[in-house]
């Protein structure tokens, strides 16, 4: 019998955090965009402390995203930040850049480390490499299929985290690509002037000429331009396959979604996890739970299995 997996979610605000905690979340990924990438909302140190103070008595964990590609300017800020996180009592730091690992090892050695380089976290041997450097958890790339995920779980002593719901980033540039395009339109005389809100709440998306059905959200922030998947992963009906394998953490990505939507999704996953562990042998997936998500799903965004059941070529 495997251990019950953690249900990890994002939150845009303290208010959403409380709602999602009540809906059944076990852990939250928070942070600020100075250090963390593609966050649902900004949690500075003060807000993080508030989150920890709420979460601790409820047995809920707070992880802090420091998964940016770190530049020289940010390096000197790392020691104080990781010390402050340790003092605040956060449960782990999520990193991709070795600079963060070095800062934590030197200045906050008790902080747990989750390794996450997004699309490039693709095999267990590399995970184990970062495990030897001090990471305790491996956050898997979303472009892996189920066989690869299960094989990774069998071959690493680290905790394994898998995204089970929501959109994923598919392209990240340091360039401000929407601004550049708007500037091009002005300078080429197509439009007289152009201003466009480009942040994550702006509702911008791309449609590729040959793929009219697919809408790819795009937004800009401090860290550049981000393009997101046109579908939302939804592993609800196959979740037991991941639970049987003993995957340690299921992540629901709440970025670009309303708190109402996220609450329904978290409740659904909570129900499925609890139902499975109430009696793994006789577990049957309850379609009705999926229907609750379908009822609030944006009709222009497909619920999909992501890459879990796909074969890729190269």
């Amino acid at each position: 019998m495997t251990v019950k997996p953690e249900l990890l979610v994002t939150a845009a605000s303290m208010e959403e955090l409380v709602r999602l905690a009540e809906a059944g979340a076990d852990a939250f990924l928070l942070g600020e965009s100075r250090f963390g990438m593609r966050l649902a909302g900004e949690f500075n140190l003060e807000k993080l402390l508030e989150a920890v103070n709420y979460a601790n008595p409820h047995g809920i964990k707070i992880y802090v995203a420091m998964n940016n590609l770190i530049d020289n300017e940010t390096v000197p800020l790392l020691p104080n930040y990781v010390r402050a996180l340790a003092n605040a009592g956060v449960d782990a730091v999520v990193f991709g850049d070795p600079a963060v690992l070095m800062a934590v090892r030197e200045h906050a050695p008790k902080l747990k480390l989750h390794w996450n380089t997004e699309m490039t976290s693709t095999n267990y041997a590399t995970a184990n490499y970062w495990g030897r450097k001090g990471a305790g958890r491996f956050v898997l790339a979303r472009e892996l299929n189920l066989d690869e995920v299960l094989d990774i779980k069998r071959n690493t002593p680290m905790e394994v985290q898998v995204q089970v719901h929501g959109l994923t980033n598919i392209y990240h540039s340091k360039r401000s690509l929407v601004n550049s395009y708007m500037d091009y339109r002005t300078s080429s005389g197509t439009v007289e002037s152009s201003s466009l809100v480009t942040d994550k709440d702006s509702g911008l998306y791309l449609i590729e000429v040959e793929r009219q059905e697919e809408r790819y959200p795009i937004y800009q922030d401090l860290n550049g331009t981000h393009i997101m998947s046109s579908d939302d992963i939804c592993m609800l009906e196959s979740l037991h396959e991941l639970m049987e394998a003993g995957v340690d953490s299921f992540k629901v990505e709440g970025l670009l979604k309303s708190p109402d939507y996220n609450e329904i999704v978290v409740k659904a996953y909570r129900k499925v996890i609890d139902a499975y562990f109430a009696n793994p042998e006789s577990y049957q997936f309850d379609e009705d739970i999926l229907d609750e998500i379908k009822a609030v799903q944006d009709p222009d965004r497909e619920l999909s299995f992501g890459f879990f059941y796909k074969e890729q070529v190269y």
Binding site: M119, E143, H172, E311, Q312, V313
Partner: peptide
């Protein structure tokens, strides 16, 4: 134009890694 390695457009559009 992306950070090298931080782009999976091909994976999503054409199932090519």
């Amino acid at each position: 134009s992306s950070f090298s390695g931080r782009c999976v457009l091909s994976n999503h559009f054409t199932d090519r890694d």
